[in-house]
Amino acid sequence: MTTIKVSTGVLTNVDGSSQFECRDTKVLCAVTGPVEPKARQELPTRLALEVVVRPAKGVPNTREKLMEDRLRAVLTPLIVCSKYPRQLCQITCQILEAGEDEGEFSQKELSCCINAAFLALIDAQLALHSFSSSVSLAVLKESGELVLNPTGDLLKVSLSAHTLALELTDGSKKVANVLLLDSNGDFTDAQLLKVLQVGEQGCLEQAQFMRNFLAAKITDEIVRTKVNDNGN
């Protein structure tokens, strides 16, 4: 599996936060909610989402807007929005290290944003329907080889680049739905199927890693606040 680094609860002023690092891409995400929305954001029956993606360098432009839109599309079906009517949830992703040529690609950043946002939502303990996991993939130009979570250099010599996000249930072992499959470049039907296949495997492995991390964190918390009978 690709080496990923995760941590949650890294910020103090927001309700949930996480940092997700996959190869040379690093994203920090903060979640606050449910809070009182501004009048124009309020939805009468559901939770409103305010999704913000901020680039590592420069001002946010259309590229970040597109990422925000994708991220919102992935997160909306995950969150139990009907549980928080007339409320707002702010999700802010700050890309710390892009790890790809920002002029051409956004696949790696998007997949890291999805993972970071999901972990931050878990940390904020907003009600979620299921687990989710996302990976990026690339088909290389010369060899036609399919790479899971490619590096920025490999993306540059790729024929097509993909971001896949899956919804997982039953111990995060079963794929319930494809939340996002965003592909760019030239590819064939067969290649896309392969992307789905390899991506699914990658997502499932990554989900187990994230579960283990979260489980360790919760267990830690329980052990820490456990009252020792003979201690005091």
Partner: peptide, 16 residues
Amino acid sequence: ISTESSPMAGPQFENG
């Protein structure tokens, strides 16, 4: 030098 605040630092900050 660009200093822009976002709700990441705390919900009191508004994006943009």
